[in-house]
Design a protein around this nucleic acid. Structure first.
Length: 543
RNA sequence: GGCCCCAUCGUCUAGUGGCCUAGGACACUGCCCUCUCACGGCGGCGACAGGGGUUCAAAUCCCCUUGGGGUCACCA
């Protein structure tokens, strides 16, 4: 049997989407499992949306996931126009393709009309009169090229569905293969390139199922061998049960903004004032699901309504990276969205997944993308990862989070952070709980609720405890984790207080919040001078 | 709406006619651990969508209903 060749063929419109990543992963797993090749092709035939920057981001994400492609030079469809055009001209010469002159507006009107008449719209070849053709040319129209489909039943076998998929003749229509701008459509490019690259297995999302009839017709006309088709389920957003979409992030922000306005009795005007966006812009966004804020507007709104980056659903692979997931975990979890090795096996290395992968264990039902379980996988993985791998992971995390004060930390200090925060879910959590160490003493922001709860409440019991703890700390000679622990615990025993009564005020004093790594670790790391400075500053706080 | 795909705990799934009183993981929850947030340990709750067949036997095969999803572009 010949070698298996699979491919991933994204269009470069931005960072890699989880759905795309899973498709890439499955193709990669199959190729590796069968000892074949996994190739990458860039489908940049949409001139308006494709950018070089997007291609760069795509490759970066794929590399981050560790999905290496085997073709040394990437195939760009935009560089293969001559090949497509020659083939299209041949098809025209054989009368298997033809010029179609309708404008997009006219096509819309035809669809509308069909819809009103409750008839399905199918485009079939029509004869233009001489007068019509003259008029189209006078109007400077550029025709598209459509493929002349034989009106008959089309059928192909799908491996993951384990059955034949059939299209009835009544559904058959002539689809566009060359656009008005001279570029081939997806349908044409994909068929030609898959054949040229010797693709044996096409694993792609279920949304392409109906396209496959067009593709096999084209393959027959062009004399290509048909690859094996395996359509993958679509990953669903658990919140609305629909296909995961970039828009889900914007939806979350909108929902929160509306809640914020309701609960704080604010108006669009208030939102506008604190975000510097215009009221008109905000109003249309709040009322229209299809309108999204752009990347510069989002953070402004998020800040005022109290949303963090990590509160948004991760949709792009880059989002997972920014929130501090490891690529191993993302791959593992993605592999389980529509595939299972059986035997209750879940957590696997890439090598194990490669070994176990097989097409007949792909699941055809659509999974809801459950981030809780991903997070749990992450917690588990980080707890087992080697110190070297953890250090590399947090450095990668910081490289995509340049604003974090942890960027100033040395490798040794980062290792300390990882150790102190053992049990963390994602690296963003390590960052959140450790950033206070790397912020200047006078820039620690004290959380008013924390101050109230641990220092002021009960007749300032916490503040009093902090004051006495300050003396104990100041007189501690052995400023190590153990030295501090024995000194503070002795003080607790002597004063008849639980450790909690002392530790919490100290924690708030040094970190500004009620949450931090274990207290003695934290004190030892922070050092005597900084600790005392922060405690003193805290004790001087008004109120 | 037409066409297509799908259907086991809330979620991801194991299950390929008898090993099923349906297994695991996440979530939820009770207890334990504990200087905070976490981590961890031991328990608990919890599903074969409904209705017809086929069969000695059905979560598993067939049909219908219902429900969910996808798709109907000069976007991929």
């Amino acid at each position: 049997m010949s070698t298996v060749i699979t491919r991933f063929a994204p269009s470069p419109t931005g960072y890699l989407h989880v759905g795309g990543a899973r498709t890439a992963l499955f193709n990669w797993l199959l190729a590796r499992n069968m000892g074949g090749q996994f190739v990458l092709r860039i489908e940049d035939t949409d001139l308006a949306r494709s950018t070089e920057d997007a291609t760069r981001q795509l490759l970066e994400d794929l590399a981050w996931l560790g999905l290496k492609w085997d073709n040394e030079t990437l195939v760009y469809q935009s560089k293969r126009l001559d090949i497509y055009n020659k083939l299209i001209d041949d098809l025209i010469a054989r009368d298997l393709a033809y010029q179609a002159w309708e404008t997009p507006a006219e096509l819309d009107a035809m669809r509308d009309q069909a819809k009103r008449a409750k008839r399905p719209f199918v485009y079939r070849r029509r004869k233009y009169t001489e007068d019509e053709l003259k008029r189209f040319k006078d109007e400077n129209r550029t025709p598209v090229i459509r493929f002349a489909m034989d009106v008959k039943e089309y059928r192909f076998h799908d491996v993951t569905l384990g059955k034949d998929c059939v299209q009835h003749p009544s559904e058959v229509q002539d689809f566009v293969i060359r656009k008005g701008d001279g570029m081939p459509t997806y349908h044409f490019g994909v068929v030609v390139d898959d054949a040229d690259m010797g693709i044996t297995h096409v694993l792609r999302g279920l949304e392409h199922l109906q396209n496959t009839f067009n593709h096999i017709a084209l393959q027959d006309a062009l004399g290509y061998v048909r690859p094996i088709y395996a359509h993958l389920s679509v990953m669903l957003n658990p919140e609305n049960g629909e296909k995961l979409s970039k828009r889900d992030r914007d939806r979350r922000i909108r929902k929160r903004a509306q809640e914020w306005m309701r609960s704080t009795k604010r108006t669009v005007g208030d939102l506008s004032a604190s975000t510097t966006l215009t009221e008109a812009r905000l109003t249309e966004w709040l009322n229209t699901d299809t309108i999204q804020l752009d990347l510069s507007e989002q953070p402004k709104v998020m800040k005022t309504v109290g949303l963090k980056e990590s509160d948004l659903p991760e949709i792009m692979i880059h989002d997972f990276r920014k929130n501090g997931y490891a690529p191993e975990v993302v791959n593992n979890f993605l592999a389980l969205q529509g595939w299972s090795p059986g035997n209750d096996l879940e957590q696997m290395t890439a090598e194990q997944m490669v070994e176990k992968f097989s097409l007949d264990r792909i699941i055809s039902a659509n999974p809801k993308f459950n981030r809780d379980k991903l997070k749990s996988f992450s917690t588990d993985w980080f707890s087992k990862a080697s110190p070297e791998r953890l250090l590399a992971a947090i450095k990668d995390y910081l490289s995509v989070n340049p604003a974090s004060p942890l960027n100033a930390a040395t490798d040794t200090q980062l290792a300390d952070m990882l150790r102190m925060n053992a049990g963390f879910h994602v690296l963003a959590e390590v960052e959140e709980k450790s950033r206070f160490f790397f912020i200047p003493d006078d820039q620690i922001e004290y959380d008013p609720a924390a101050i109230e709860k641990t220092l002021i409440k009960n007749d300032r019991a916490g503040a009093i405890a902090l004051k006495s703890a300050r003396d104990v700390l100041a007189s501690t000679t052995d400023w190590s984790m153990h030295g501090l622990e024995s000194a503070v615990k002795a003080h607790c025993e002597q004063s008849g207080q639980g450790l909690g009564k002392i530790a919490q005020p100290i924690r708030v004093a040094i970190s500004g919040s009620t949450v931090s790594p274990p207290i003695f670790d934290s004190l030892a790391f922070l050092g005597r001078d900084k600790t005392l400075a922060r405690v003193d500053r805290c004790l001087r706080l008004p109120g």
